[in-house]
Each structure stands twice: as structure tokens, then as C-alpha cells.
Simulated assay, not measured.
Amino acid sequence: MRLLLVEDDRMIGDSLRSALRLEGHAVDWVRDAAAAEATLSSERFDIVLLDLGLPKGDGLDVLRGLRQRGDRTPAIVLTARDGLGDRVAGLDAGADDYLVKPFELDELNARIRAVLRRHEGRAEPLLRHGAVTLDPATRQVTRDGEPVLLSAREFAVLEALMARPGALLSRAQLEDRLYGWGEEIESNAVSVYIHQLRRKLGADFIQNVRGVGYFVGGGTPKP
């Protein structure tokens, strides 16, 4: 998935970006409120990780602006502000969750998964289609109960498709989930990952509409 990290502390930001990339996420990072507002106005993300104490503005104002525009992008506040009033203000401003620093990466990952489940309207933590099951928490995939070994980017492509069964995702949309700013996009990378997934999961598991995109699920694909 593609994440926007809004964090002014260089050490924390660099550490979080590196750790989240190791989880297979595409992570873009901005360091002030003005950059966050400009980025969120022009680009789409699966989730926003938002510090509150920022240069050039406050994270709460960024969050309020996001919601006032009708943007439903899930947002998790990551902040040192630990007072009850701060937590209430963050949630009332539109945050989907509120995590106080310092925190463990495992907890952040669990909260990201929980927020995305709520956003997608599903309670079941596992993603299933046909004989294939994907567990976002353990990053394990099985087919007919047997484990299937995937690379981090193969997993990211499969998770994006299985999270929205029947939804048609273009190559550009899948690339957004694989690469952050400054990362070189490999030529035909998505096609290569789709080919590898079909080889491991079955030739018909991932379907495509030529020149448009890919989808998982039967019937007519949805935009």
C-alpha cells in the first residue's frame, strides 16, 4: 500500500520510512504542514501517518482540511501529545486512530491493518478468494492450505488486488503501491509480478482487461 508519512523529526522519519518499506509499503515522506497539505491535495494515498507538532502549521489543521474537502483517506495521528484533551481533539478532527510516541512498530502495523479493515468495511482480518488466503498480519499466503512463498512486492500487488475483489486496478495504481518518491520504477515490473503470481497461484487467478488493468474475482470488473 502507499503511505504518506508526515513527520518533521529526521531521525524518526527516516527510521519509520525504512521500517515500513521493509514491510513492503511504498512510503512518501514530508516534513512540514504546508508540504503535507499540498501533497494531500494533489495525490492519493491508502493511509496518512500524521505528526501534530509540525513546522509551517499544525497537524490538526492538516487533518481538518483533509476532512473538510471530503477526503476520506484514513489517518493515524503519531504524536508525543499524550493528554486526554489532545487525544479527543485529534479524534474529533477526523483521525481514525491516535498513537502516542514512543511506540512499537508492531503496534503501528497492527493499527494500520485495523484502520484499513474498517475503511474497507470488513471485519475479517484475512483476505480470501477461491483457494487463496492472504494474512496481512503475518504476511503469509496459502493456496489450498499450502504456503506460497512471495517476494515483498509480489505480496504488495496481491494484497492490493485481493483487498478489492472485482475492482480493476491499472498498472499505474499498482505501481503507486510498490514505489515511493525517488524510487526507480522498473520497466514492466507490474507485468513481471503478475506473471509470477499467476505461476504460483494459478493462471486464471488474476485476470486482466487488456490495456486497462488487472482484477481478482469473477464477473464484470469494477472501476
Rank of each mutant, 00 (worst) to 15 (best):
P102H: 13
R199K: 15
S170G: 12
R81M: 15
Q68G: 04
N188H: 06
V190I: 12
H195M: 08
G130T: 03
P102V: 03
V141I: 11
T142G: 05
A152T: 09
A89Y: 10
D86F: 03
A93D: 14
R64D: 10
D86L: 10
R128A: 15
A114M: 08
R111D: 03
D96F: 07
E124Q: 06
G85I: 11
T79H: 01
N188A: 10
E107R: 11
A163P: 01
L126S: 04
R111V: 05
G70L: 10
V148N: 06
A163K: 04
L174P: 00
A93Y: 11
V115H: 07
L158W: 03
A89I: 02
P74H: 07
R199D: 08
G94I: 07
G65I: 13
N188T: 09
T73H: 08
R72D: 11
A189V: 11
A95G: 04
G202M: 05
G94P: 09
T73K: 05
E183A: 12
Q68V: 13
G94C: 13
G180H: 08
R171P: 02
G145S: 07
D97V: 07
P147W: 13
Q173H: 01
E184D: 11
A80P: 06
G65H: 07
A163C: 11
F155W: 08
R198Q: 08
G121Q: 08
H195V: 04
L78V: 10
E159A: 11
G94M: 06
A131T: 14
A163S: 15
R143Q: 13
A152V: 09
W181N: 15
R81F: 15
L134M: 04
L66E: 06
E104L: 12
L201K: 02
A95Q: 01
D135V: 06
G202V: 12
D71T: 06
L91P: 07
E120H: 15
G83D: 09
E159V: 02
A110C: 10
I185D: 03
G121I: 07
P136W: 00
D86E: 15
A95W: 02
L134Q: 02
I194D: 02
Q196W: 04
A114R: 14
R118D: 07
S170C: 10
D97Q: 12
H119W: 11
A75Q: 01
I76T: 03
G85K: 14
D92Y: 09
R139M: 09
G65Q: 10
T133Y: 03
V148E: 03
Q140T: 05
G90V: 05
I194E: 00
I76R: 01
E120G: 13
R199F: 08
G85Q: 15
A160T: 08
N188V: 08
R87Y: 13
L174K: 01
G90S: 14
P74A: 13
V148W: 03
R111K: 07
G180M: 03
D106P: 00
L178E: 06
L161N: 02
P136Q: 00
L168R: 03
A80I: 11
L201G: 02
R117N: 09
A131L: 08
Y179H: 06
